[in-house]
């Protein structure tokens, strides 16, 4: 049970990251966390212990490209953007997520209004 949830969250975090960058353009880690928090009305608070390993893992896999940039306050921040592979993965995952959640929802038999 726990394992399944962890797996789901794991997949979801990567998808959330991909999608946030896709929507807002290149972002650093904090802005990704902010974007996810704002986008979910503060429902999803992504943990840093999850976020950073994910960013680095994705970077290593080649779906993200990280780059050091000077922020407006003069501090260095590592800003992430999608690679071509990243875009392809986002499309795939988004599609599979929608189908997946629809299937689950169907199984769980949850009415629409209870979700939001």
């Amino acid at each position: 049970m726990t394992r399944v949830r962890a797996n789901r969250l794991y997949g979801a975090v990567e998808l959330l990251i991909l999608r946030s960058i896709d929507r807002h353009g290149p972002l650093h880690g904090l802005d990704i966390a902010r974007a996810i928090a704002t986008g979910s009305d503060a429902t999803i608070q992504i943990e840093e212990g999850t976020l950073y390993p994910a960013l680095h893992r994705m970077q290593k896999r080649g779906v993200l490209r990280g780059e050091w940039q000077k922020s407006d306050k003069g501090r260095r921040a590592r800003v992430y953007d999608l690679t071509a592979e990243g875009r392809a993965e986002l499309a795939n995952e988004l599609d599979s997520w929608v189908r997946h959640t629809a299937a689950i929802r169907q199984v769980l038999d949850i009415p629409e209004e209870e979700v939001s």
């Binding site: 650093h28 880690g29 904090l30 950073y52 680095h56 290593k60 080649g62 922020s71 921040a77 590592r78």
Partner: peptide, 26 residues
């Protein structure tokens, strides 16, 4: 062929510190 990027420990630390500072500012 892009070599897998490997951050130094300092760089990871810097990235995390940046995050923490931003959070405090928020």
């Amino acid at each position: 062929t892009p070599l897998p990027w490997r951050p130094s420990r300092d760089e990871i630390d810097e990235e995390i510190l940046h995050h923490m500072r931003g959070r405090i500012d928020d």
